[in-house]
Write a protein that binds this DNA or RNA. Structure first.
Lengths: 241, 241
DNA sequence: GGAGATTACGAGTGATTGCTCGCATTCGTC
DNA sequence: GACGAATGCGAGCAATCACTCGTAATCTCC
């Protein structure tokens, strides 16, 4: 389940943040690898391999969500996926790459869920209506993929992992800013950027509540999240005359 | 600087979450320690020791804020404080205890900053005025102690560390709920609890923005945070008739 | 059904790190 | 100035964990 299987950018990930496992660095590297897999090596892969990648990413999502990034071991991910550690490292060069693949998958999904913000007609739909329609699927996504929140939204993992959230956040920020532009074209851009940042931050703050709440509270809480954002944005647009 | 020095509950911290470092567990423990330091062992301590504790906690705050909990090594804390690892372990039984001491210190400070919420006169001061007066010192505190946010508010460290934030969060939630009760006594308690949770979550969400922003943006952002909370609470109180 | 590539395994390796231990130094007190 | 207690040191231990490697099973394609 869940279309993780689209084989993200695996293979050219951080080759220097990892622990240097080279005991004798004085030895010159054999120069045949430069022409071998220099740039365009999409890697032959069987259907079984694709399935394994999906299994591994799903398992990683669960373990990361339960334990956070640094506390999860690659062996735990492999065990949860029902494979050996060696097999895991056939598909991912290191632990970071697993998180990176997850991040890319999540970013793609969320980007799709945020597209409605770009095509709203402000003369036909109020801001409240737009949010009321768009928020529930986003909430559902986060409840289905808690690792997204735990790792890439507000989580504090080691530096290079945090970098992965930046593109997603930048895109989300842009979506919000675009939405604000639609509803308040006269707002000075500086204020609009600030408003988008605050809106995004508030949204990120309430998400954990929504993800950890029992199922039956979700509609009510989603409504409250909408109220929070609309309440703020109303004030922002009113003060910006 | 910074009055950390009030010697928190060090010495009776988690004695089981640590790695079992006893090679031969068959050996029976000498029974004289049960009567020795069973419950009330406040530990004789010189002024020098208090100073070291303060140094260590301050250093820990910096390192934790920079690297997060699990990425910081106890040796790094000791080095930053200018002491040897052995000295660190004279004052703290383990890494967790350092974080716990920090958490207690932060919780005390924040609790004090939140007391204004308990003594507001709703007939003389509007909700907006109350927040406008109380938020800036809280923001200043978090900017002065970034580790508080990184470790205990929204951070995802290994489990037992997350437990430390719960008392602080519970107290903050109670303060907000009390404030809401003052301004909307007719609101059903269920809705009031929910509103307090959402308010707290939104506040937690915007804090990182405030801590990481350059100095000159802080007043403006604090104003936006106030708008966010007031905008939501206005709606909450209006819908609750 | 055979050749070559891909997949799978899992015990092992080396680096990291929380923490200890024996011993030296300084402090408080008489 | 002398005694015990508190403080201070830092090399090193033991456990953990990301990652490797030799080898064997399985797939693809002829």
């Amino acid at each position: 389940m869940l279309a993780f299987v689209n084989a993200p950018t695996i293979g050219r990930v951080s080759t220097e943040t990892t622990r240097a496992q080279t005991p004798t660095p004085g030895e010159a590297p054999t120069p045949d690898q430069a022409a071998d897999a220099s740039e365009a090596g999409p890697k032959r892969r069987q259907a079984r391999g694709e399935r394994r990648i999906a299994q591994l990413l799903e398992a990683a999502g669960h373990v990361f969500a339960e334990s956070g990034y640094s506390a999860t071991t690659t062996n735990a991910i492999a065990a949860r996926a029902g494979v050996s550690p060696g097999s895991l490292y056939q598909y991912f060069p290191n632990k970071d790459a697993i998180a990176a693949a997850l991040a890319e998958s999540y970013a793609d999904s969320l980007d799709e869920l945020l597209t409605p913000f770009a095509v709203v007609d402000p003369t036909a739909v109020t801001l409240e209506q737009a949010l009321g329609a768009s928020l529930p699927p986003i909430v559902d996504f986060h409840r289905a993929h808690p690792a997204c929140l735990a790792l890439f939204i507000g989580g504090n993992a080691p530096g290079h992992i945090m970098d992965l959230q930046q593109p997603l956040m930048a895109r989300t920020h842009a979506r919000i800013a675009a939405l604000l532009t639609l509803y308040a074209p006269q707002l000075p851009s500086e204020r609009l950027q600030l408003g988008a940042s605050v809106t995004l931050a508030a949204y990120k703050g309430v998400l954990p509540l929504l993800v950890e709440s029992p199922e039956e509270l979700v509609p009510e809480l989603t409504e409250q999240l909408k109220d929070l954002l609309v309440g703020y944005l109303d004030r922002l647009l009113a003060n910006g005359d």
